[in-house]
Structure formats: structure tokens, C-alpha cells
Amino acid sequence: MALDGKAILGRLTRRAGRRDGAEDTGAREAQGAAISPFWVIVQKEFGDHIRSWRFTILLAIITLACIGSIYSAVSAIRGGALKDELDFLFLQMFTISDGTLPNFITFVSFLGPLMGIALGFDAVNSERNRGTLSRLMSQPIYRDDFILAKFTASLLLVTVVIFALGLLVMGLGLFTIGYPPTPEEFWRVFFFLVLAVVYVGFWLNLSILFSIRFRQAATSALSSIALWIFFTVFYGLILNLIARAIAPSSDAAVQRILNYQETMLWLNRLSPAELFSEATTTLLTPNVRTLGPFTLEQVYLAIKSPLPLGQSLLLIWPHATGLIAATVICFGISYVMFMRQEIRSRS
């Protein structure tokens, strides 16, 4: 996997080097071959992550979880859990389980944020505490390049890990069920993996934000984890309370019930975890035709058939946009905070 990463990185850096060389209007023409400081930081951070114990442990947990989920999915398929739904058998590798262990998407949506947080929670404050930040900031680099490089390096690593795991699951699936994916299934899995990277990217950026805000790495890690637990556990509970309070009676007008449903859905979608889970369900279960409430009238005469890939993508477009927007907002806040901070040694 490290090799994969380095190859990607090498290509990226070469490309960036060329682009930068063209842009950098001749301040140091003799050194046109030197790559921009941004990619130097990315390279170093990437190397640091790969060599760190933290990453090794995390990778071990996630790999084990994924192997477990495949085992559970395969035994479910063997046990005849499918019956009539033989469409998209390959995608079921990711979505079903025999009940002993959660399925692949549950693992990704649960452990992904943890990986993002683990890679980002001490990005800036550890440099500050080690006294390297002030040394770094006295080099000719832009401040925003520094946090952007930290983010890029970690995101690159996340991309490598998620794609490696996803392809691993696909490969193992091929072995065990002996049923090849159709191109559409392949692309669905591909977009699911891209979405997972975006989702982890959000948590990564959030933890970088906390690492700028809080001087102690422990505080920043705890706040990130607190927020993560809040969205995965408590947010649902709170919504249930609200739902009970504002629910209309069962004999209320259709419009009122619809309004109520829409409100609840809207509140629910404030949580990035919910956005991600809706989007992955849509992608990996093509039979999902709509995400909002619908009346019997709308279902009447509808043909029960899976959605084509394009339509599924259209359905989750707002979700993807929402997740990316949340990431960008976090980055914007980090940027403003970091630009205004005074960099002194170890304080």
C-alpha cells in the first residue's frame, strides 16, 4: 500500500512541480527543478503518517473489520438470505450481513471518521508544542499552504487506504462467491469509495480545525471524538424526542403529515453521518428510488425496477454537495483562525 501511495504521490508531485515551475516567474530560474514547498510538506507528512504507530494500529483494526464483514456477508449469501433478490448480487457483498458482524458500509461509516480524526487531531498543535511550527513559519512558505498540505497528505493517505480496502473486498468477493461484477456495479462501488473519502475528509478537516483551536492534542482529540459520538449516537436520540413532541395525530391531513416528515428529514440531514448513510444506501442498493416521503398515490403504477446509476447519482448529488460544503466550511474556519494566530515558540 505504501508503494501505491508513493507512486501516486510521485506523479502528483511531478505534475505540480511542472505547473509551479511555469508559474514561478523566474525568481529562481536556476532551481526550476526544485518542487514547491507545498509538495515538500505533503511528502514529509505522508511519510510521517505511514511510519507512525498510530496509522499501523488503525490500519490493522480497519483491515480486520473489513475481513470480518466480508466473512459475514459471504456466509449470509451462502445461507440463502437473498431468496428472490438476485439482482446486484455483487453489491450485496457490501450491504448484507448474517447478523454476527456489521456489514462493510457500517464499518466504513463507523471507523472512517475515527481514521480521519486520528490523522488530524494533532496536526498543528503538536508542531506548536514541539517548537517546530515557529521554525517552519520562518521559512518562505504561505501559512495556508501549511494547513492545506497537512490536509492533502492525510486525505491522500485516506484515499489510498479506502480504495485499497474497497478493492480488496471486491477481489475477495470474486474469489468466494465466484460472481463477477457488472460494469455498473463496479462504478457504483467506485462512487461509494469516493464518497467515503469525502466523508472521512470532512472528519479529518474538523479535527485539523480543533488542532488549530486547542493547544493540547488531548483536548482536540476529545472534542473531535465527542462531536463524532454526538452525531452517531445522540443526535438520533434527540431527534426522536423532537419527533415525539411535534408529531401530528395519525388522522391529521396528509399535507400536515408530509410537512412533519419533511421537517424531520431536514433535521436529520444536518448530521453528516446521516448524509453519508443515505448516500451510500442509495448507491449500493439500486432499488432505493427516493429518499423523501412519498404517498401511496405516487407509488401506484410505478414500475418496480432498480434505478440506473445516473439517476442514483442524481439522487445523492445534494448529499455529496452537503458533505463537501461542510468540509470547505471547516477549512475556511481553520484558515481564518490560523492566519490570525501569532506563532511563538511553544506557546
Binding site: D48, R130, L133, R135, S138
Partner: peptide, 14 residues
């Protein structure tokens, strides 16, 4: 920063 070197007090390295 390209032409000025700065050594902070209590300098830190990786």
C-alpha cells in the same frame, strides 16, 4: 523569509 534566517528561542526539531 527567503533572505533572513530566524532561530527561535527553544528551537524544536522533528
Amino acid at each position: 523569509k527567503r533572505r533572513v534566517g530566524y532561530m527561535p528561542d527553544d528551537i524544536g526539531f522533528y
